[in-house]
Write a protein that binds this DNA or RNA. Structure first.
Lengths: 198, 198
DNA sequence: CCTCAAATCTGTACGATGTACAATAACTGT
DNA sequence: ACAGTTATTGTACATCGTACAGATTTGAGG
């Protein structure tokens, strides 16, 4: 695990190593377990070595959130042969599963909202589906709605897990369906107004 | 500000003092500013005095969340003369305002979900409105949906504030309206099924 | 090949945090 | 008055982020 014992320019680390270690710590011990010293120990390096790659802990945490988002395959939901409702449902469930698999990741995303390429890719996939749904100008707001509900929902579930994990999934699915109903109603209303203006 | 300089049984503190100090710190410096030592200093007492009233910091934080919920007047929304949609909208906006007024409070609620009398009172108010709406068995899930969206939404807004705070309110209102549309559609569907069973 | 600056890492150290432990003073009941 | 309980203090420790100052290796320019 440990690389060397003496200082010097040796390139024993990489940004990926740090993020991988951070992710492992997150999975094992929750958000509190993600510490600079813990990461360093796990990759076998002095704590300060981390600062060669990240300016401070907040940057590591942001990077970790990005890293996590990079693990979800969102291109899979771009296929327009399925209904937009099914696609969003599946997308939401997938993201939820990924977040639930790493306790603390939601907290971390809510306190240090990432904004790297992976984050934007996810956002764009969502926006594309919503555009297909005919939400037009409201697509951005709808995306925001889905996002915030997802994060809030998972955060709450992590903090206060239901007795039966299955029940959590059922409840989440129900909530997403209500959201989709609301969006569908809005689409219908917009369409109606467009065909019979003011 | 400081009470005394020597040990001894003096009852210089109260649970309320501690929570008030914590709330002030939260309002001033966000969640990170809420520390045992900070609270103690603010009420002019040794850090360990806090442990007479709370077993650990987590308990203080939970108490603080409760304290905060106790400040919102939710009975005001119990009046059934208004439509349930208006009542929920107003309720959500009120809670949002309270949470936004204390940066970090959402985080704190998401990491240490309170469950004291105030929390339950708020939940019951919500449930009552939703029961009026005719949601029946689904009222609990609907309440959960509104709750999680509220928390997620505010958390996100605190972490990444919009350029124009007004825009945040508009967006939130739009989202709540979509939620309400979704719930209304569900109510209609349930009613339809009940009048024409299977 | 030699030199040297830049890059990468280590060691030490400081201030802040939560909190365990023991000592101390004031109150309470007898 | 005395004894026991209890609120408070002071001291101390482990852990955290990270600033600072070396040490060592590496690669580039001569």
């Amino acid at each position: 695990m440990d690389k060397k014992g003496r200082p010097g320019r040796r390139r024993t680390l990489s940004e990926q190593d740090i993020l991988d270690a951070a992710l492992a710590l997150l999975a094992e011990g929750g958000a509190d377990a993600v510490t600079i010293r813990g990461i360093a120990a796990r990759v076998g390096v002095a704590p300060n070595a981390v600062y060669t790659y990240f300016p401070d802990k907040a940057a590591v945490v942001r990077g970790l959130a990005e890293h996590l988002l990079g693990r979800v395959d969102h291109d899979r939901f771009a296929d327009p042969s399925q209904s937009w409702r099914d696609r969003i449902r599946a997308f939401a469930l997938e993201l939820r599963a990924e977040l639930l698999a790493h306790p603390g990741s939601v907290h971390l995303m809510l306190s240090h909202p990432p904004d790297g390429p992976h984050t934007q890719a996810v956002r764009e996939t969502l926006l594309a589906i919503l555009a297909d749904a005919g939400l037009g100008r409201a697509a951005a707001d709808a995306s925001y709605l889905i996002n915030t509900h997802l994060l809030g929902s998972v955060a709450f579930e992590v903090a206060a897990p239901p007795d039966d994990p299955e029940a959590g999934t059922t409840r989440f699915r129900w909530a997403v369906d209500r959201l989709l109903d609301g969006l569908a109603a809005h689409v219908a209303a917009v369409r109606a107004e467009r065909s019979a203006p003011r």
